[in-house]
Design a protein around this nucleic acid. Structure first.
Length: 512
RNA sequence: GCCCCGCUAGCUCAACUGGUAGAGCAACUGACUCUUAAUCAGUAGGUUCGGGGUUCGAGUCCCUGGCGGGGCACCA
């Protein structure tokens, strides 16, 4: 922003001039407070109630209210004027009349713009065209807006009653960079984030009701782990020590199970230093929980209950639309063996295929970047190519290869596999859980396998966490645990195509 | 990191093979005391993302840089 008014574009200059004019009239353009009697929608409801009980005045006036809000529409008709105010609840029309306000207070309305915050007081009434409106007896500027918000023109379709926006704020980049403007002009964006908040409240309520304890574990960690991911690295000055932003909460939460906090959960921001996509933001919200004495079967049961609980509470039904597809959460979710489903897709038994056979299949399918991929990775790639895209309805994929799951317990009936599940919804992995590996000796050897992968160039492989092994040596009871991608779950419930549309301030490159 | 597409007025978008950069909304001036994409008349508003090049002439073509979107890679 330039200090020199001359340099400003026309639209900004005009507002600076109005600001100056207001100050010259002795009007404070940035008020300290306001005391509304109600918010918009509530004021309308009260009016409608008295309307139905026939308790309006002879002239049709109802309750007197003071309402504060942002001016979002403006129709000047000379000696009277209609505007809409929007507040945290909704919007309400205001009717200004010259003969009611008097010349001076009416003419001062000229100094207002779309985007200004004002307060007004008057009776509620219903206009000839049927809209419940506040008839302004007085008004007051609360905050002058010095920069025009990119409002579109809003039409209500006469047939459907649908809100239609003409030439609204659509530039994706600006909507993310200036989320405040996006929220200010696009009420449906505000709704997405209200929904997100309700989802998190509901998840928390569910776990609390099941006797889980919400805890907080370190974001800054001397050693990261719990996921195959590259970390963000930082430095603690006083300790002169390298610290990592967590990639998962897993290892700390399981230390708490060792400590006897037998049902714990954490809602956390995790950080993974990797690329961006419609399913990946480097900073994202994870819910992880661990429950002693359970295995992955009972955790799948719990996930199902939890998902249905949230649907019932937040959506009010067991299905949602995701794009053109209806996602149905009723009943038990399907279960697919990872190896079995891949075998079927390949038309060959994956268990009998060696690394070479898997590789040639992958090459046949022209799957890129196979260099250095071991058996587990090849299976993962093939599965991602052949099976994953079809997992639109909620589906548990179960029993992953050991190599891919260094923290999961060996499968009780197949030593090549682990007791692990992932729940896919809309083609994306949303939940991931397993029977937790609690044998410290097995855990050490898994870490050692990871170290050799690391030595072979896999930057995401785990390092050995000696302190974690020490904890397991004290004894961790049989435990089931689950991690949940909260953002991805919200995407499904809010019918959003990109993770950026459910994160208020997604990561973007700096403007300069 | 790679591929494709995009970036023009405050916002949403035009501008055929290179030939004076336009419209709607917003803004400004004026009219209008129940409007609601209000309406009507008029006015103003531009570093066409930055830099370089080709050309008599570049929003348009070439090179280069920036940012974004989509895809790929990466992603227990």
């Amino acid at each position: 922003m330039g200090h020199d008014v001359e340099e400003l574009s026309q639209v900004l200059r005009v507002r600076q001039e109005k600001l100056k004019a207001l100050r010259e009239k002795g009007v404070e353009p940035f008020e300290y407070s306001f005391d509304p009697t109600k918010r918009s929608t509530e004021a309308i409801s009260v009016f409608e109630a008295s309307e139905s009980t026939g308790s309006l005045s002879d002239k049709g006036y109802g309750n007197v209210e003071r309402i504060g809000g942002r001016v979002v529409s403006w129709r000047d008709m000379g000696k009277s004027l209609f505007a809409h105010l929007e507040d945290g609840q909704g919007r309400v029309q205001v009717y200004f009349r010259k003969d009611v306000l008097g010349d001076e207070e009416y003419e001062a309305l000229d100094l207002l713009d779309l985007g200004d915050w004002i307060g007004t007081e008057g009776n509620m009434f219903r206009t000839r065209s049927g809209e419940v409106t506040i008839r302004a007896q007085s008004w007051k500027l609360l905050t002058k807006s010095l920069r025009p918000l990119p409002f579109g023109k809003v039409e209500t379709d006469a047939q459907t009653g649908q809100r239609v926006v003409h030439s609204g704020f659509a530039d994706q980049e600006m909507r993310y960079r200036q989320r405040y403007a996006d929220l200010a002009v696009n009420p449906e964006v505000r709704e997405v984030f209200r929904l997100r908040s309700r989802v998190i409240t509901s998840l928390r309520g569910f776990l609390d009701s099941q006797g889980f304890l919400e805890v907080e574990t370190p974001v800054l960690q001397p050693l990261y782990g719990g996921a195959a991911a590259k970390p963000f690295v930082t430095e603690h000055n006083a300790l002169s020590q390298t610290m990592y932003l967590r990639v998962a909460d897993e290892l700390y939460l399981k230390r708490l199970i060792v400590g006897g906090l037998d049902r714990v959960y954490e809602i956390s921001k995790d950080f993974r230093n990797e690329g961006l996509s419609r399913y990946h933001n480097p900073e994202f919200t994870m819910l992880e929980w661990y429950q002693a004495f359970t295995d992955y079967d009972s955790q799948m049961q719990l996930v199902e209950e939890m998902v249905q609980h949230v649907l019932d509470e937040v959506v009010g039904g067991r299905s949602v639309m995701l794009g053109e597809t209806e996602i149905n959460f009723n009943g038990s979710f399907d279960k697919l063996g990872l190896i079995d489903s891949l075998s079927e897709a390949l038309g060959a038994d994956v268990h009998t295929m060696d690394q070479k056979a898997l590789r040639s299949k992958a090459e046949e399918l022209q799957i890129p970047d196979l260099e250095g991929a071991g058996t587990g990775k090849l299976i993962d790639k093939l599965f991602g190519e052949l099976v994953e895209p079809s997992l639109v309805q909620p589906t548990f994929v179960v029993d992953h290869p050991k190599e891919l799951s260094p923290l999961a317990k060996e499968h009780r009936s197949d030593p090549r596999l682990t007791e692990r599940f992932e729940l896919y919804i809309g083609g994306a992995e949303v939940f991931n859980g397993f029977s937790e590996l609690n044998d410290p000796i097995d855990q050490r050897s898994r870490f050692e396998t990871q170290m050799s992968l690391r030595a072979a160039g896999d930057e995401e492989a785990h390092e050995i966490d000696e302190d974690y092994i020490r904890a397991l040596e004290y004894g961790m009871p049989p435990t089931g645990g689950v991690g949940m991608g909260v953002d991805r779950f919200v995407m499904v419930l809010a019918n959003q195509q990109s993770i950026r549309d459910v994160i208020l301030f997604p990561i973007l490159r700096s403007e300069e």
